[in-house]
């Protein structure tokens, strides 16, 4: 009887060789809970599958249940995913460009209404206050009503100049002129606002690729909402692919360099978009938008995201 008991005890608390049947139902539950947290279904499934592969035939540690073992493997794998190999430090890079006497430029792209212009204003505030940099904003959304006035208002509050041509001309050319103007006037940074567009709209995606290619900005930032569901994957894939496919000839294809995830304050613990975005691109989340005011721009806290996902 005694040996029987120890045996059962061992099964729950460690030293057990894991089989597919052990881990699968547990991972299925985790996958469901990830999806509830807004992780896209295909990503939740792929993630759990890869965790299963690493676990099967492994031995659980002593005093550890199968569930705890699975959970800790999942947490490890999400942590690895969210911790990018190559990070981008905009402030540092802008300061070093300034030392070399170069104008540092960032372009903000993304679908409609996600928070491109607001994030751009927040980044202007950040570079100005943290780096004492001279920032200029380029108003290259010459489509949406009020887009220029929106930037004008921000520029007034932030005391930075706006380069704009109203609602006329070619956005790519306006950006080019802004970069030249900044150079002439001795500005350190140019932040380029673009119009929102749907990722499948070929005409508008071509125009965006042109803007990126003829201006070769230092950084291309994709702006996406924490609110978005499965569409995040398609948005990122198509924006990235359009930059490559519609590249101007004789230029090195550019891709998205980093991500700003906005409206993080609106999703509570449903933070799965962070995972979707990084999984899709392998690119870092450079900033997270956590509100509608200028200081509401944070760095991604991986532990917070994991805490919310596993809650």
């Amino acid at each position: 009887l005694f040996s029987k008991l120890t045996n059962a005890f061992q099964n729950i608390t460690g030293n057990k060789v894991l089989s597919e049947e052990d881990v699968e139902p547990i991972l299925k539950n985790f996958a469901d809970s990830l999806m509830e947290k807004n992780v896209a279904s295909e990503i939740a499934e792929a993630l759990c599958k890869s965790v299963a592969n690493t676990l099967v035939d492994k031995r659980t540690e002593s005093f550890t249940t199968v569930k705890a073992t699975v959970k800790s493997a999942l947490v490890d794998s999400i942590t690895k995913l969210l911790t990018p190999k190559k990070n981008i430090d905009i402030l540092k890079d802008a300061l070093s460009a300034k030392q070399k006497g170069q104008v540092y430029s960032v372009v903000f792209i993304g679908v409609n209404g996600v928070g491109k212009s607001t994030s751009l204003a927040k980044v202007a505030y950040y570079l100005k206050t943290k780096g004492n940099l001279k920032v200029m904003i380029a108003g290259c959304d010459n489509f949406r009503s009020g887009a220029i006035e929106q930037l004008k208002t921000h520029c007034l509050c932030l005391d930075v100049p706006l380069y704009e041509k109203g609602y006329k001309d070619d956005a790519a050319i306006i950006a080019k002129e802004a970069l030249q103007d900044a150079k002439n006037k001795g500005y350190d940074v140019v932040l380029i606002d673009t119009a929102g567009r749907m990722q499948g709209n070929e005409k508008l995606m071509r125009a965006l690729a042109k803007l990126v290619h003829i201006n070769s900005p230092d950084v291309v930032l994709f702006v996406g909402e924490a609110l978005v569901g499965n569409d995040a994957i398609d948005q990122l894939t198509k924006f990235n692919q359009s930059l490559i496919d519609y590249a101007v000839q004789d230029t090195n294809p550019r891709t998205i360099d980093g991500i700003i995830m906005t409206k993080f304050d609106t999703v509570d613990e449903k933070v799965g978009t962070a995972l979707n975005m990084v999984y899709t691109t392998g690119k870092p989340i450079v900033f997270v938008g956590v509100g509608q005011k200028y200081p509401h721009l944070k760095k991604l806290n991986v532990q917070t995201v994991i805490g919310a996902l596993m809650s």
Partner: peptide, 16 residues
């Protein structure tokens, strides 16, 4: 009355 440019946005839309 909150969003920057909200007034101009709707005004321009209405004019269109």
């Amino acid at each position: 009355t909150f969003r920057a440019g909200a007034f101009e946005q709707l005004k321009m839309n209405a004019a269109k």
